[in-house]
Amino acid sequence: MKVKFWGVRGSIPVPGESTNRYGGNTSCVEIRPRGGWPIIIDAGTGIRRLGKSLMEGAFGDGHGTAHVLISHTHWDHIQGMPFFSPLYRRGNKLHVFARQQADTHLQAVFASQTEDPYFPVPLVALEAEIQFHELVEGSQFVIDQTVVSCTRLNHPWVAMAYRLDCDGASVVYCSDTAPFTDILLEHEFISKPPTPGAAMPTSMADKLAAMRAGLVALCRGTDLLIYDTQFTVDEYRQRPHWGHSTPEDALIIAREAGARSLCLYHHAPMRTDEAQDAILLATRWTAKQAGDPFEVIAAFEGLELTLGDDQ
């Protein structure tokens, strides 16, 4: 399978010279099983260019089918959807998957994204056929020859990590999540970080441990682990309640799960290319010191990786 990055940024798109190399578009990754339709993870602004590239093939004639796995519906993971050209061509089919809180249907969430007065083209006016599929954590399903598994992450409201297995290889997409140590975010609004040193209720600690175990199991032996590493350690200390991890957190999970490579992802909006280079080098150094056998890379727009027997 091929894995291509179209948007690697977290929170908000950041155009400008300081992000030219890594790219300023928000989260979007394309997984292409050998000979198969694209499976897209997240629909940040990066999906706009992916859509243009797909229109050069079967999607341009209205004969395309795409599956979109949404980690969660925060803006930076869905804001490109209304600019995904294949949606405006009759005959194309789109399947959208996400975990949703019990009180709102996934379709309603996406419909409200483009309702008046926010966007001029409502969901019902799109030419393509869209089907929404609500997931529960731990569910497993098949898209053509690809097996998709998922587990819940530690992020405000709800977020899911996905694992895709096909062509004798696997990739895990783990964004967005806080580490499983200081705070359980679930779905309540948390305005402040937890009091340092405060004891965590057992029920919370148990839930976090279970969530962490679920993620480690999902990542077991994966060829490529794409991980939310938006924060430095200092940034995390200030904002543990924002639901993002550090490269150190990612290394620990990758190590424990026996991942074969780790990809830093969901870069902070104000992180310049030079600062991101430094984070990558520091993370590689830490991994080397620890004797980690896996490679560490940092995602950038346009990066394409080939995994498994798709050579």
């Binding site: 798109p13 400008g16 490109g80």
Partner: peptide, 18 residues
């Protein structure tokens, strides 16, 4: 100064993509 959706990339550096 941009419409519709932010447009990052080297090709919009001078006028800006925000």
């Amino acid at each position: 100064v941009r419409g519709s959706i932010p447009a990052p990339g080297p090709e919009t550096n001078r006028y800006g993509g925000n």
